[in-house]
């Protein structure tokens, strides 16, 4: 485990070093090119602000409304059909809406159910196999000032759903076959 940590901490650093070193050897003016690339960053970060605020505020309102709690009770029977632990349903609902919120929920599941329990394991798999869909939609479209999304949210959310179902089923199988 300590090796993994070591690898993790040096891996990205090594990639950055290799890129810069290779470019320098090949005669690229690394400083000037870095600056030229970096200049683009500012505009994009500022451009996305209106899009971020619009979507993230709507999501915040939705979360604060308590709709999640109601949805959760409706979805519990459907979840138990595939053997989904009840604590995982709020995680599946929150994941597309909030990155920080779902990470907090995952840790809460670890604390109540145990990090190496089936729910704790499945929560980690779910957390790793999906992204914060609404945030990505806001930021990506914001960066190019695109307003009409042609219904792309449907495939994104259904993709998340497929991933969650797969995460629950695969974790159950993997856990029973190799770890239990």
């Amino acid at each position: 485990m300590i090796w993994l940590d070591l690898f993790n901490n040096w891996f990205i650093l090594a990639i950055i070093f290799l890129i810069v070193a290779y470019a320098w050897i090949r005669g690229v003016r690394v400083y000037e090119e870095f600056i030229r690339g970096a200049k683009e960053g500012f505009d994009v970060a500022v451009l996305i602000i209106p899009y971020l605020v619009a979507i993230l505020c709507a999501v915040a309102l939705f979360r604060a409304s308590g709709a999640m709690q109601v949805l959760q009770t409706w979805l519990a029977p459907a979840g138990s059909l595939i053997g989904m632990h009840s604590s995982l349903i709020p995680l599946a609902l929150l994941k597309p809406l909030s990155g920080g919120g779902s990470r907090g929920l995952m840790i809460e599941i670890w604390e109540t159910e145990g990090v190496d329990s089936l729910p704790g394991f499945t929560a980690s798999v779910m957390q790793g196999s999906a992204e914060t869909t609404f945030y990505i939609l806001a930021v990506y479209c914001g960066a190019v000032a695109v307003r009409r999304t042609r219904g792309v949210l449907g495939p994104l959310l259904l993709g998340d759903l497929a991933g969650f179902i797969a995460a629950v089923l695969v974790s159950r199988w993997y856990f029973a076959a190799f770890l239990d």
């Binding site: 497929a162 797969a166 995460a167 695969v170």
Partner: peptide
């Protein structure tokens, strides 16, 4: 799981 979600998407 990622394979399934990406493929579906």
């Amino acid at each position: 799981a990622t394979f399934f979600s990406t493929l579906t998407g």
